[in-house]
Amino acid sequence: MILCAGESLIDMVPQDGMFRPLPGGAVYNTAIALGRLGRQTGYLWPISRDPFGKVILRPLAEAGVITDLCPRTDRLTTLALVTLTNGEARYSFYDEGSAGRMLRPDDVGPLPGTVSAIFTGGISLVPDPCGATIESLIAQHHDRLPVMLDPNIRPFFITDAEAYRARLSRMMPMADIVKLSADDLDWLYPDMPAEDAAARILATGPRLVLLTGGEAGARAIWAGEPVHAPAIRTQVSDTIGAGDTFNAGVLASLDAQGLLTKDGLAGLGADQIRAALTQGAQAAAVTVSRPGANPPWAHEMPS
């Protein structure tokens, strides 16, 4: 089971001059996408008992995602007010004292033996106590379980950039796969070419550093020659959840190939990496073709 540990929230998405509440959150979106793609998936994040908590739980159940590890709380659900500029999403967060932000280590029980990999990232890594809790979870399990990390950096959410950079500098070496967008690289390494930045990260321990660039497609920096997969052309509705769905496509491909293990990732070849990047791009193309974070089901993917 691939365990997705990180934020869920309600995206308030503009529609006809008003805002439509849709469940979202970077790690949550990846969990939904993995479940829809037919992979055994678990989710770990506090779920509020407020009405939005039910909205968040419903798609998880529909996608077959296991939520046994999610603590329930009376704290409120995080809200993200979305604005769209030429289809690109920007966010304002209402998060102080929220259900997820207050996640503490004693809220996280022992991981069941069925957990075979962990995915994490997003804004869940930024504030404490939840950021420290997720970092501790990865520190406890990364020696045994493969980890994929997508920081999905939102600069306007970060109040202490130095502390967050320090957290990422501790967490990236614990990950087997690190995914970074062009925006992430601009924030982390503003004066460094993308592949040089990726090589620097790779040298700290990950097996794969994945670079995504929208229409430019995706690249993998690893021990061999860089691997590239083009973006899939489609009519873009908006980009909400695109990167999250890409992550799910990559993980689903590696899992289906039997490679989402420590040994499997250590022995990856270029063709296997290209297949994973391609499935990530295909899944993301479906998501951007329709409003909101609405990842594809397995039957909607190219055969």
Rank of each mutant, 00 (worst) to 15 (best):
R219K: 15
S116C: 08
P206L: 04
V13W: 03
T239Y: 13
A285F: 04
R274Q: 13
D11A: 11
F157N: 04
P302K: 06
L81N: 12
L76K: 14
L103N: 08
A198T: 09
N86A: 15
A281R: 03
N86Q: 15
A117P: 05
V178C: 06
L259W: 03
A216Q: 15
I66C: 12
L277A: 01
P21R: 02
Q272A: 14
D106T: 12
A132K: 07
L211Q: 02
L60V: 10
A99H: 10
M171F: 05
T30H: 06
M171Y: 00
I158H: 08
R58M: 01
T85A: 13
G6M: 04
G131E: 07
G280N: 09
E96D: 05
T239I: 14
D95P: 06
E225W: 00
A182Y: 06
G131P: 07
G25Y: 03
D11G: 01
T133Y: 04
A220D: 13
L277Q: 09
D106S: 14
R20M: 13
P14M: 10
Y43W: 12
G269Y: 02
D184F: 12
G205E: 09
P23D: 10
F52R: 06
R170G: 08
E225H: 10
P146W: 10
F93L: 14
L22K: 10
P151R: 09
Q272I: 07
L210Y: 06
M12L: 15
L44F: 04
L44W: 08
A223H: 13
V108G: 04
T114C: 14
L277N: 05
A194P: 01
T73M: 09
Q15L: 15
A293E: 00
G42R: 07
A216T: 11
T114L: 12
V178A: 00
L259Y: 03
T41N: 00
T212F: 06
M174D: 10
V65Q: 08
G213E: 03
R72N: 00
L149S: 10
N247V: 04
L268Q: 07
A99R: 02
P291M: 08
T204S: 15
Y94W: 08
G64P: 09
A89R: 06
P151L: 14
M148P: 05
G6L: 05
E96S: 12
S253R: 13
E162T: 14
L22R: 13
D183I: 03
V250Q: 01
A281S: 15
A26H: 02
D107I: 09
R290Y: 01
D184S: 13
M172Y: 11
S303Q: 13
E135S: 10
M174Y: 04
R20G: 00
A281W: 00
I158W: 12
G217N: 14
